[in-house]
Write a protein that binds this DNA or RNA. Structure first.
Length: 299
DNA sequence: GCCCTTGTGACCAACCTTGA
DNA sequence: TCAAGGTTGGTCACAAGGGC
């Protein structure tokens, strides 16, 4: 039996362990070695971090983030597939996914991988070159740089592609609304790391993130308005959000007193609706949103 | 046809940034 | 300095599609 409490993160922390029938109380001991590679663990804030740069556990997590829907979104490269490809030695760095095309026959032989799966996977990796720059920046797995911050960085880099990141001065990063000293430091640490920086060159060699179509912030029909989207809409949520941004609006993931409108589709999230009601935020449907964008409706 | 993997959206808490 | 706003990333539930 163990006693747990909420720690710094959501994952519960074991504070005490009870042994035997009499439930003798003993202090819980934190692990000192990484369960994936056996290297030493280092305490950084609330996290225990493996000190091994080549840890397979860290590689698998990074691959999962790299392939998330907001990043390269390589369909067919899910958690189980990543597990197999890393364990079988096909992938030992993030950049290795672009070398899989040279092993197609061996991949078909793997358990759970048929001809169609491998063909689709390789084709989807090829398609990663077409992903927009914010998605490519998100796929770099820089700490605290997710889709939103990546988009702001891409706007700052315009019209340069991914290699523009290497030359961007710190003051330019700090001038971005939403980027402070912590995130700026994380980006610069990434750029100055030889190992991490290799990925930028692999991307360039494979044509990934070379074109920056991310336009600088514009003034449009939704200028100065902040939107939160909930429920199922007629098209993909990210496309709706893209339309809002292109019309000069801002998209947020949670409601606050600064939110202008909650865009509701089918089956809207109850917490977002409750939050909107609490803050007296106007709730609109998709049709009204597009009337606003097209200046048909007076805001 | 069943089972497993993957994709999508909602929700939640930590934590970074901003502004008073 | 601190509170509020907003982003990130983890988990869960459900649906769809491919492999066996």
């Amino acid at each position: 039996m163990v006693k747990i409490e909420r720690s710094g993160e959501v994952i519960p922390k074991i504070t005490e362990v009870y042994f035997g029938d009499d439930c003798e109380i003993r202090e819980a001991e934190l692990p000192s070695l990484c369960p994936c590679c056996g290297h030493n663990l280092e305490k950084r804030g609330v996290d225990l971090v493996c000190t091994n740069q080549d840890c397979v556990g860290k590689l698998k997590v990074k691959l999962r983030l790299m392939n998330s829907r907001e990043a390269l979104e390589i369909v067919g490269l899910g958690e189980e597939t990543v597990e197999i490809l890393v364990d079988k030695g096909f992938i030992s760095t993030l950049g290795d996914i672009f070398s899989l095309k040279f092993h197609s026959k061996e991949l078909i032989e793997l358990d759970g991988m048929g001809e169609k799966s491998v063909s689709d996977l390789l084709s989807n990796i090829e398609s990663a070159a077409k992903k927009d720059l914010p998605s490519v920046i998100t796929s770099l797995c820089i700490k605290d740089v997710g889709p939103k911050i990546a988009k702001l960085i891409a706007q700052k880099l315009h019209p340069q592609g991914i290699m523009g990141l290497i030359l961007v001065p710190e003051e330019d990063l700090l001038s971005i609304d939403g980027v402070g000293p912590v995130i700026s430091k994380n980006i610069l640490s990434f750029i100055h790391s030889t190992e991490e920086c290799k990925l930028l060159y692999i991307y360039t060699y494979n044509g990934v993130g070379q074109i920056n179509t991310c336009k600088p912030i514009v003034c449009g029909a939704l200028n100065g308005k902040t939107f939160v989207v909930t429920g199922t809409l007629s098209k993909e949520r990210k496309l709706i959000e893209q339309d809002i941004v292109e019309a000069g609006g801002k998209v947020s993931s949670s409601c606050s007193s600064k939110t202008s409108y909650l865009v509701c589709g089918d089956n809207p999230g109850s917490s977002k609706v409750a939050s909107a009601e609490k803050h007296s935020i106007s709730m609109i449907d998709e049709q009204l949103l597009y009337e606003m964008i097209n200046n048909v409706h007076i805001i």
